[in-house]
Amino acid sequence: MATETTAESASACVGPNGSAIGMPQLCGEWVGNQVFWLILALVAIYFVLDRVALPRIQAILAERQGTITSDLAKAEELKAQAEEAERAYEKALAEARSEAQKIAEETRAEIRQQVQDAQDKADAEIAARTAESEKQIAEIRASALANVETVAKDTAEALVAALGVNADKSALDAAVDKRIEG
């Protein structure tokens, strides 16, 4: 360490004005110090990393991976459930629809049947009434015809009597009958 050239400087590598002589990197007297502290620093970093930091980060990453995996699995499960629910809903909807269709069909048939029955009944009644009316009309017509004969005969008798002719009743009736038919 003793040097003749530098009186004030403590090192052989530093000039009297405080600047370096040559490359400080090649100064032999600083090597030991740096190596010593470097080894100390490296050992410190190694222990900190190996004992604390790296296992901790590894655990964090593993935990995150686990969380992601389980979350994905959960999401998959929920998706399956949702799909299942959708299928059930679709099935229920289809069933309800077919049920409704069936009920509507049944109701329609029932109503049709009722309408048919009512119509048949009404038809029968109408027919019965018509027949009865026809019968009455025929009776009326027959009685009217009979009345016409009687009235015609009576009228003819009265006319003949009024004319002063004493005519035979049966001959008059026959003549009236003949007129009516002619």
């Binding site: 403590a10 090192s11 370096a20 490359m23 400080p24 100064c27 600083w30 110090n33 740096q34 502290w37």
Partner: peptide, 23 residues
Amino acid sequence: MDQFIVKPLFGDGGVGLFTVTNA
């Protein structure tokens, strides 16, 4: 090159093996 000079952090003595330096 002055920035690369190794010097003791405390005092003006020489740089020994265990001296606390800027390094």
